[in-house]
Amino acid sequence: MNRLSWFNAVSLTLGFAFLYIPMIILIIFSFNESKLVTVWAGFSTKWYGELIHNEAFLDAAWVTVRVAVFSSTLATILGTMAAYVLVRGGRFFGRTLFSGMIYAPLVMPEVITGLSLLLLFIGIGLDRGIFTIVLAHTTFSMCYVSVVVSSRLITFDRSLEEAALDLGCSPAQAFRLVTLPIIAPAVISGWLLAFTLSLDDLVIASFTSGPSATTLPIKIFSAVRLGVSPEINALSTLMIAVVTIGVITASLVTKRAAVRQKQEEQAAARAT
C-alpha cells in the first residue's frame, strides 16, 4: 500500500482542491488593486492599509479578542472542573441532569442558545455588552472544553493520583502537582478550542451583544451582507494566516515531541 491508486489520488486531489481553492482565491484577490473584487487589476496592498485605519474594525477586533480571552479562560476553568466531576465525581444528586447539560449545548442550534440567553439577560435586567457575550461564550465553550478534558481524564492512570496521595499529598495537591501537569495538553487544546469558538461566533454574539459591544464577526456579517469587498478579503486573509501559522506550529511541535519521546523510549529499551 505504498502507492496511491489513481482513484485515491484523484479523489484526494479534487477533495483538497475543493477545500482550499475558495480560500486561495480569497487571499489572491485581497491583493487586488481594483475595488471590483472580481476583476484583477494588478497587485496592491492598499486594502490592508485601509484596514489598519478602519477604526470600526479595529474596535470590533479588540472587543472580540477581549471576549475570547476572558471567555475561553473562564470556560477552561469551569470545563475542567466539570470534566473532573463527570469522570471522578462518583455519584451525586442530579448527575444525569449535569451530564445532560454538558452535552446538550454541543448539539443545540446556536439561534436557540442565543435567543434563550438574551431572554434571560432581559429578564434579570442585565445590560448587554462585553460582559453578557463573555457569559454566553463561556457557557457553550465550557461544554466543549469539558468534552476534550474528560476524554483525556478517562485514559488517565489513576494510580498516579494514588501514588501522590500515598506520598503525602492532599487531594488538592495531588491535582495541582500531578493530574494537572499531565492533562495540561488537553486543557490547552480545550482553551484553544474555546478561544476559536469565541472568535468565530456570530449568532450567539448577535443575540447577546448590545450597541456598546460589536464583535468582529458581527461587523463582518453586516458588511458582507452588502456583497463582497476587498477590505473584507484582506481581513479574512489576515485571519486565515493567523490560524494557519497557529495550526502548523502546533502540529509541528506535537509531532516533534512525539518523535523525540519515541526515540528516547527506544534508546532506553536498547540500553538494557
Binding site: 494510580s159 498516579l160 494514588e162 501514588a163 496521595l165 500515598d166 506520598l167 492532599s170 499531565i182
Partner: peptide
C-alpha cells in the same frame, strides 16, 4: 487516617512514576 497521613508507602504495579 487518610492515605496521605499514613506512615505507609506503596510501590504500584504500574510503578505510577510521574511522567512530567
Amino acid at each position: 487516617i487518610p492515605p496521605n497521613k499514613r506512615a505507609v508507602n506503596m510501590m504500584f504495579q504500574s510503578y505510577a512514576l510521574f511522567p512530567h
